[in-house]
Structure formats: structure tokens, C-alpha cells
């Protein structure tokens, strides 16, 4: 079993919902972000277009950060997820330097000014510090919501299929641009997407074998890189119209066509 993610760049509508979901799920300090959107500007014939690409820790099968870590704080689980044991991390930042994708962040004092700098912390922040304590002086990164995956699987849920065992960003993506599943299972949703839609990894030439794949739009240089916003919105609408009634009720609390009751 090896958990992986497929990101459909055509569907991504740059709403930053995955970024926000990750922030809330893990009570991330103000200046730390595990999931990021890279904005890429391309100028073609005087028309500047900006495309965004969601990036997060690639959970590489041959992870340079794991090899670099001097304390084994960064280690790889059997299911392929690379996690950091904050109690073991000494904060040497070698993993930050060694990560070819720059998806690790060192949690320094300056990165936690509070959501409202200069004011008292909110109750949400206080609660977050107890529920998900982040240790200053250690390194952090996306962990594929490993706590959700583990807790959900214990209850019999299937990651990537059932929301309770699926990463928060995947659940939240309103365009359904993110798909989570088992890369080792040839019949899984992610394996099929990679196979049918020619999924590719970022900088595969490093030989790190990332578990995050991208489909539908090639990154960098290619004309298709600049997915027009209209096309993305179009594919989003198309996706929403294809959602069955049960799923619609689950997501929006009502079926399509129902009149919204307002008081």
C-alpha cells in the first residue's frame, strides 16, 4: 500500500480552499503553510496569464529529507507517507535544504505572530495549540493528514473514498481536482487517473519518485500550461452538474433544484 495523490490542473480553480482546509485541520501557525499554490506567470504575445499549481510534500518514495535527517525524526511509514516526529527533530534544517521541492518549513519564533498580531490569541488559536501542538524549533510539512487516514481506517473507512479517512484538502476541494488513493493498487482511482490521463511527477529526474502526480496540463513551457480561468470554471461547473443527488445533499445539505429556505 502506498498512498498517493493526483492533482487535476484543469479542474483546479485557484480558490485556495485546500490551503485553508489544511490550515484549519492542523491549526497551522500564521506563517506556516503546508499546502501552497505556486503562481506561474507566462507572457505570450503580450498577454500575461497567471496559472497556479497546488503543491505539497510529495511524500517521495526515495525521500532526500529522510536520508538527510540525522535523528530519524523524518521517516517513512510503510504506507509511503513521510512524517516528522517533532519530539525527535533537533531543528538542523538539513531536510529543508535537501528537499528538492522546498516543501518543508522550519517553525521559528517569527512564524507564529498569531492570527491577529499584537492582540490576544483567539479561542480558536488557544484550542488549536492544545489539539495540535506545533513545536517551535522543529521542521514541518504536509503529512497527507495521516491522523485522519489512520483514525478513519481504524473505523473501517477507505482513504480516498470515504471522507473520514481522506485528507482535508481532498475533501474540501470544491472542483474535485484532488484525488487520493493507493498507488500500489492498479485499480484504484489514482492509479487509473495516472494511467489514463498520463499523470506525471514534478522533477522526476531527481529519482525521488514522488507520490503526488499531476494530470491534464503540462507544467512549464508547454502552451497548455496556461489553463484559462474560464476553462477551469467550465470544468468545475461540468463536474458539479455530474454530482449525483446523494452526493449533492451530502455536500450542500440539499438536493439540486431545492429552494433554499431563508428566514
Amino acid at each position: 500500500m502506498r498512498w498517493g495523490m493526483v492533482i487535476n490542473l484543469a479542474k483546479c480553480m485557484r480558490c485556495h480552499a485546500c490551503v485553508a482546509a489544511c490550515r484549519i485541520e492542523h491549526f497551522l501557525p500564521m506563517d506556516i503553510t503546508w499546502v501552497k499554490l505556486i503562481a506561474y506567470e507566462a507572457d505570450e504575445g503580450g498577454v500575461v496569464d497567471v496559472s497556479t499549481y497546488p503543491v505539497r510534500c510529495n511524500q517521495c518514495a526515495d525521500a532526500p529529507c529522510v536520508h538527510a535527517c540525522p535523528t530519524e525524526a523524518s521517516h517513512q511509514r510503510e504506507d509511503g507517507i513521510v512524517v516528522i516526529d517533532s519530539d525527535k527533530c533537533i531543528g538542523c534544517r538539513y531536510c529543508v535544504v535537501a528537499c528538492p521541492y522546498q516543501n518543508r518549513t522550519f517553525f521559528s519564533k517569527g512564524k507564529d505572530p498569531g492570527y491577529f498580531p499584537g492582540y490576544k490569541r483567539t479561542k480558536f488559536e488557544e484550542k488549536g495549540k492544545k489539539l495540535y501542538p506545533h513545536q517551535r524549533g522543529t521542521t514541518e510539512k504536509c503529512n497527507f493528514c495521516v491522523e485522519r487516514v489512520d483514525a478513519g481506517m481504524e473505523l473501517g473507512y477507505r482513504p480516498g473514498i470515504d471522507r473520514d479517512a481522506t485528507p482535508a484538502c481532498v475533501n474540501t476541494c470544491q472542483a474535485r481536482a484532488l484525488t487520493f488513493g493507493d498507488l500500489d493498487d492498479p485499480d484504484s482511482n489514482v492509479s487509473r487517473l495516472i494511467r489514463d490521463r498520463k499523470g506525471f511527477q514534478l522533477r522526476a529526474e531527481y529519482g525521488t519518485d514522488p507520490s503526488v502526480y499531476y494530470i491534464d496540463y503540462r507544467l512549464g513551457g508547454a502552451p497548455s500550461n496556461k489553463a484559462p480561468r474560464e476553462a477551469q470554471t467550465g470544468s468545475h461547473i461540468q463536474h458539479l452538474s455530474s454530482v449525483d443527488r446523494d452526493a449533492h445533499r451530502r455536500i450542500f445539505g440539499r438536493e439540486p433544484g431545492d429552494t433554499e429556505v431563508t428566514s
Partner: peptide, 29 residues
């Protein structure tokens, strides 16, 4: 002094870690 958690430096020293097999920092320590 540079370490984020200096008091845990001993974790990078064998036999408290087996990371020396791959990590140059552990080897250096």
C-alpha cells in the same frame, strides 16, 4: 546554537540514531 532544539543534539549521535547510514550530519556529529 544554530539548532532549533539544541538540547536534543544527542539524538543525532550514534547509538541514539541509526541515521549515520545515510545522513552526513549524523556522520559529521
Amino acid at each position: 546554537i544554530y539548532l532549533g532544539r539544541p538540547l536534543r543534539f544527542w539524538r543525532a549521535i550514534p547509538p541514539f540514531t541509526k541515521a549515520w547510514k545515510t545522513s552526513w550530519l549524523a556522520r559529521g556529529m
